[in-house]
Design a protein around this nucleic acid. Sequence first.
DNA 1: TTCTTAGTGGAAAGAAGTGGAATAAAGTGG
DNA 2: CCACTTTATTCCACTTCTTTCCACTAAGAA
Lengths: 145, 145
Amino acid sequence: MFRGNHPTRVDEKGRLKVPAEFKRRLDELYGPQFFITSKDGKRAELYPMKEWERIEDALAKAPSSGAKKKFLDVTNYYGQVVEMDAQGRLLIPQLLREDATLAGDVAVLGMQTYLVVANDAKHRAQLAENPLTDADIDALGVVGI
Amino acid sequence: MFRGNHPTRVDEKGRLKVPAEFKRRLDELYGPQFFITSKDGKRAELYPMKEWERIEDALAKAPSSGAKKKFLDVTNYYGQVVEMDAQGRLLIPQLLREDATLAGDVAVLGMQTYLVVANDAKHRAQLAENPLTDADIDALGVVGI
DNA sequence: TTCTTAGTGGAAAGAAGTGGAATAAAGTGG
DNA sequence: CCACTTTATTCCACTTCTTTCCACTAAGAA
C-alpha cells in the first residue's frame, strides 16, 4: 500500500525521480515497468504494470458501455508504458507533461495501489475548489474517521 | 496487447510511420500485412491480418442481419490491405486519409488487439467534449482506479 | 569526520525518424 | 500493340532524437 506525499522533481528532459521510499516498495513488489496515464489530463497516474493489467482484465469482463469506451479512449490517449532506470527515474510522456504541467517540483501521492503525480500548486488549488465535506465522509460509512 | 499512445506523423506521401515500439511488437507477433479500415470514417483502425481474419470468421458464423451488412459495408468501403515497409511505414488509403484527416501529427493508440490512428487535434477535441466523469468511473465498478 | 545513500546533470552511443532519389509499375494515347 | 507519361513503391543515406550510463554533488547517518 502506497501512502503519503513525497515531493520530488521532474528534470528538463522530462524525467521523474521516483522518491526513494516508493522506489524501494516498487522494486520489491513489482518489476520496473509501469503504465503512466491520466483520467482527466490534469495529473498523471502511475500504475505498476501488474496493477494496470488487473484493471484491464476487470474491464474486459465488464459489459460494453459508454463509460468503458470513454475510459479506454482517455487512458490510452494519455497512457504509455514506461520503464524506470537504475537511477530510479522514468520518462513522462510529453503529452502528459504538457497537459498536467509536470515540470520542476511535483508531488507524488501514494494512492494505495498506484501513485499520483501532480503539479503541487495545481493540486492545492483543486483541493481548495472542491473540498471534502462532512457529507462525503458520512457517505463512506467507515467508523473511526 | 497494445496499449498507450505513440504520437507519430503521416508524411506528404500519406505514409504513416509506425512507432518503433508498436513495430517491434507487430514484427514479432504478426507479418507485415494489415487491414486498415474505419467503422465511422473519423479515425482509422489498423488490424494485423490475422486479427482481421479472426473477426471475419466470427462474422461468417453469425446469422445474417442488418448490423452485419452495415458492418461489412462500412469496413469494406474504407478498408484496404496494406503492407509495412522495412522502414516501418505504411501507406494509408487516400479515402481514409481525407475523411479521417490523417496528415501531419497523428496519435496511434493501442487498443489491445488492434491500433487506432487518429488526428491528434480531433481526438483531443472529442475527449474535451465528452470527458470522463467521476460518475463514469463509479459505473465501471472496478476497484483500484 | 567519514561513509553511505539519494539526487542530478550531461556526454556518448545507438536507435528512430525523415526526405528524397532510383526503380518499377500502371495508365494513356497514338 | 507499342511508346510515352505519370504515378507508385522501394530503398538508401542523412539527421535528429532518445536512451543509457558514468560521474559528480548533496544530504544524512554512523
